[in-house]
Design a protein around this nucleic acid. Structure first.
Lengths: 357, 357
DNA sequence: CTGAAAGCGCTTACAG
DNA sequence: CTGAAAGCGCTTACAG
């Protein structure tokens, strides 16, 4: 009998206990556990009975140690303090990745400590994770450079500049900007304001910040419209409010505002209301963002949306595929958003006049 | 030289490699790694140099296997499908727990697979987790009963009926209901409607559903008001909208609506607006809930709020404390909410008249 | 202060 | 078809 601490009385039988009870050797039990070939049916039955009787469950840590893999993935979003993550990472990002990992019998860690190059490498070296899913990737991301150099497995939600042989899934922001303009133009809008990611994000080379503005430029050129935009903080209703007032001062003719966050859009609606406009009768507002509180806003928000759950789920499967098959060629996906028309957009009052011109 | 697969070229030195390089035995390296006593300074230096030179990092799985603990915690919310979690578990719940775990050098798993009694026990038996943090606890929760019976460590965010020797942290809903009434009464409101959790949740014995209604009753009695409430679906703006119209039909005198979710509150605002009332000038709306999209709603929502991040952080520390010290007496905390006054509440227009009566 | 030995629970060749 | 042996990387008594 092995000694058991009284702390965990229900804790359990080992493979050796099962082997003894079934009167076979340990490797035989192991084979049955892992569905290996060449086991006599009679032996299998006996062992299974013993397993059942003892309530035996394989020890995960031991299995992993032997297998040389942690079967653990990490999701990483670079941020100063864990507290800030709440405002910026939506639950579906996490649940999507966790769900995909669970299906493949992997674990998912939400990497929350401040990461240095040293600690990033140690995460792999200590066998804490087999691979990582990187969020908030910048064009020249140190994590990407480091992991690539050391040949540690990772995938990106987002993308950097040099994508050679790198696996990623990213939101197609240029496409989204064009889709927003196509839609608003159809409704008769000609003067369209844009609230986008902070300038600091663009300077840092963060994909959405860079590409949303590029997409805006392309859309303006396609339709021959003038630019009216502000780069502002994310997540803050107040900033959307202030920037919209500012935009309206610059060009009172604006009939539509496009934002890159639901919160900012809520601020735009407030600002327009403050100025005496009704949304959507007088002015339209829409967002390009992950689905979120669109329905919680009054009026509910028309948006070009991506499903963070799906994107994250997909990224996680891509990571696991790569781990299972090291020579898999890089997978690269760009996801188009879906236009969900709710209450905050409407044809301009003077659409007829405009389209007749 | 051990054989290395080319898949992970940077992967690493083991404790044996360090021992050889420093010309000491493996246990000596281990002692230094774990800051054990009795090591010659000269030896320590030599070993540390070797560690540094080889870039050695201890193998986490091996350490855990030896230590007999997984140093992993799980957060569990019972739900049919992982996809549904997104609507119901807010990010700070997860980040709070993950942050607390990280500080204590534990891992946090977000348990996302459908859990049966068998698989719940196996989670412990397989050494996948040392302890669990249970969310959405019902008065007679099978998870609690099972884990208690088998003496596996867990803590609750929420609480069941029999709390003897159980550790939990819970939201003080009764307190919150009274606080809401105290506040609204001060503003002159006398006819207060209430939208609360679904009847099915109450029938299932879920704490907030049961206790919010009890709190409502207490508050009504305290002030001698009449009951006007509906038990409706969570998270759906539409349901809040419909239920509020319904409540207004029942009692057009209602001057305030209290809800248990921001989304429902958004629906209430829509409904009141639809009926021609201005919020907050004519009618007030407030929520009792985790902080969330309060600022995204127009007008921004007055609320009695809890911080899910803090609650989850605290619960996780409580779990780890218990793990580190098995004989620790049960810790039990009830958290009072904070009243955050935003734009959606205001004194009734006829407050003077009413208070003069 | 340091090392040889045993063992955590498992799986993978290797024999038979 | 099955078992004896070795080993994954580490730590903990036990000697010295």
């Amino acid at each position: 009998m092995r000694k058991r601490s009284s702390k965990t009385p229900s804790q359990g039988a080992t493979i050796a206990d099962v082997a003894k009870a079934a009167e076979v050797s340990v490797p035989t039990v192991s084979r049955i556990l892992n569905n290996k070939e060449y086991v006599a049916d009679e032996t299998r039955d006996r062992v299974n009975q013993a397993i059942h009787k003892l309530g035996y469950v394989p020890h995960i840590q031991a299995r992993r140690l032997r297998g040389g893999e942690s079967r653990t993935l990490a999701l990483h979003y670079p941020v100063e303090s864990p507290h800030l993550l709440s405002g910026v990472v939506e639950t579906p990002y996490i649940t999507g990745a966790a769900a995909a990992a669970a299906v493949q019998e992997y674990y998912l860690n939400f990497l929350i400590s401040q990461l240095t190059p040293h600690s990033l490498l140690n995460t792999y070296r200590s066998n804490q994770v087999d691979g990582m899913i990187l969020l908030q990737v910048s064009l020249d991301d140190w994590r990407v450079n480091l992991l690539r150099e050391h040949d540690y497995p990772f995938v990106m939600i987002g993308r950097c500049r040099d994508l050679d042989n790198l696996t990623f899934i990213d939101l197609d922001f240029e496409n989204a900007m064009l889709a927003a303009f196509d839609y608003l133009t159809t409704l008769g809008h000609r003067e369209i304001g844009f609230l986008t990611y902070p300038r600091s994000w663009r300077m840092a080379g963060l994909g959405p910040a860079v590409r949303s503005l590029e997409g805006y430029d392309q859309a303006l050129r396609k339709y021959g419209f003038r630019a009216h935009y502000r780069e502002i903080g994310l997540g803050e209703v107040e900033e959307g409010f202030a920037a919209t007032l500012d935009l309206l001062d610059e060009n009172p003719q604006l009939t539509a505002i496009v934002t890159t966050s639901h919160f900012t859009a809520a601020g735009s609606i407030k600002a327009l209301t403050r100025r005496g406009y009704r949304v959507p009768e007088d002015r339209s507002v829409m967002a390009i963002a992950f689905g979120g509180i669109a329905n919680g806003i009054t009026p509910s928000l028309t948006a070009l949306e991506w499903s963070p759950y799906d994107v994250s789920y997909q990224a996680t499967l891509m990571m696991i595929d790569k781990l299972k098959q090291a020579d898999l060629p890089a997978q690269q996906f760009l996801v188009a958003p879906e236009l969900v028309i709710r209450e905050s957009t409407q044809a301009t009052p003077n659409q007829l006049a405009v389209s007749v011109q």
